[in-house]
Design a binder for these strands. Structure first.
Lengths: 156, 156
DNA sequence: TTTGTTGCAAAACGTTTGCAGCCTC
DNA sequence: GAGGCTGCAAACGTTTTGCAACAAA
């Protein structure tokens, strides 16, 4: 995994992608990229749109359009966790794509594990070229486990 | 991993879940379970509903309701791959939850790998109890890789 | 100048919900 | 008999789309 990248590097990668695929370098696209760069953690389109429009004029449609481009450029990763809306995550450099998801409360936590990462990254396929991966572990967080345990005790 | 289970066993597990959680054993629920049991591969709610209603009367709302119950009973697993709709997969016995997903055409293929499985299953967390996992490897299938390669060659 | 991109609003889509009647318990 | 479950249709919320105006190339 690469080290974290500066905004200049990320901007360069995006520019390269846009050029190679004959897309235009619009101010909106760079504004969204910069906003995402400075954002910490997971986000969704609506959240990004709301926090951006406080001091920049963009439409939600453009946000979606740009997120698609950035996904294609491998600068962000999309997660469909809750079912209601998609979540996005930066993919600038050293990022973790392992998630613990509580089946009860829906809370998402990240973790890293060298052995898991190695076993996945060393796997190759003859008819498939892997670019990135996402691992989701589902289960119960400690709070929900306790909560459900108490409920069961009550109903007896 | 367990061996594949007979319908009687699966039905028994569902009945047990319904009883333990004080849900009713309605004919619709068993009809949906049986239909899923005989279904091969991934499916979605609409597909299930359409193929069922050819010879059984159920509403889409009941299908969704029942899928939720079966998920809670750990009899099926939900995948949110494409963004448009959720996909479900049987979890009766020996199932694989590793997926190769082509970022270009969206095709999904399953694979199994002992080392990956072991590294994930041996991992434990102090504040989280894992029940199941899903691993998604994104990339390009051989067809799309060739296709995109040819397109790039053309545009030069 | 050309045509890809934008903003806006309306439409689309899968999924959820409200409600009256039904049927399991 | 009580109340969880059903079917139906309408509502929901996220995402996509159509179109005229705009601006990057």
């Amino acid at each position: 995994m690469k080290a974290n990248q500066s905004y200049e590097q990320v901007r360069g990668l995006f520019t390269q992608y846009l050029k190679e695929n004959q897309h235009r370098k619009t101010p909106e696209r760079y504004a969204i990229l910069e906003h995402i760069y400075n954002y910490v953690g997971h986000f969704n389109a609506e959240l990004l749109y709301n926090s951006m429009t406080e001091n920049y004029r963009v439409s939600l449609a453009t946000v979606y359009n740009t997120l698609d481009l950035m996904m294609a450029a491998n600068l962000i990763v999309k997660h469909q966790l809750g079912g209601q809306f998609a979540q996005y995550e930066k993919n600038f450099g050293s990022n973790i794509h392992n998630h613990l998801i509580c089946s009860n409360c829906g809370k998402v936590k990240e973790f890293s594990d060298k052995q898991i990462r190695t076993s996945i990254q060393t796997k190759t396929f003859s008819l498939f070229e892997v670019s990135h991966y996402s691992l989701y572990l589902f289960g119960l967080c400690s709070k929900c486990k306790e909560l459900l345990h108490n409920e069961n005790a009550k109903s007896l």
